[in-house]
Amino acid sequence: MITVSNLAFKYSSDTSIRFPDFSIKAGEHLLLLGESGRGKTTLLHLIGGLLRNYEGSVIVDGTELAALPESKLDRFRGRRIGFVFQRNHLINALSVEKNLIMSPFLAGLPVDRARIKEVLVGLGLGDKGHKKVTELSQGQAQRVAIGRALINKPSILLADEPTSALDDRNCDRVVQLLLEAADNNHAALVVATHDQRLKDKFKDQIHLA
C-alpha cells in the first residue's frame, strides 16, 4: 500500500533529512517513533501528499505522489487518505455533523447521511451530531476528528501524535479506535508519535533517529 525508498526531503538548501526505506500493506499497522525534530511529521506529510518536493520515491496505492499534479493530488488525498492530527482542528463554526460532512464534500464525494450516523454511533457520539464542537471535551473532539478521517473509507489512515494531548484512559481508547477503524476498512495505519505508551500496541515500528 505504501512503499518508501531512498526518500529525502530538503527543508532549505542546507538542511535536509533522509528517511529509511520501508513498505506496508493494506491492513497493516506501523508506528513511527522518535523524539520531536526527527522528521516524523515530515515523513507523514510526505506519505499523505501534503509535501511534494521530495527526492526518491513515495508510492501510495500504486501511485508515485510526486508525479501527480497538485489538483489531482488534492483529490487523491481527499479520497484515499484520512488524517488525524495531534490537536483535533475541528472547524469551530460548524456543528459536529457538519464537520463530518466537510470530508466527503471537500473530497468531491456524495454526502451519505447514513454513513455519518454510522460513524458517529461507532464512536459513541450518536447523540452529539448537532452539538457545537466547542461544547465537546478534548477526548470527544479527538473522536470526532477520527470520525472525520474515516467517513470516506480511506485506504490509508495517517495519525500525527493522536494521543499526546490525552490522558491514559482516552489514549487507550483512541488507539483502540484507530486500530479497529483501520481493521474495519482494511486500511493501512501509520501513527507517528513520541508517546511511549503506544510502544507495545504496535508490532511494526520504525525508529527515526
Binding site: G48, S71, D74, R77, G78, F83, I91, S103, L106
Partner: peptide, 16 residues
Amino acid sequence: RYDMAIMRSMGASRSK
C-alpha cells in the same frame, strides 16, 4: 489558517 490547512488535507484544492 488551521481550518484551511485541514480543509486542504481533506482534499480541498487551493482554488476552492
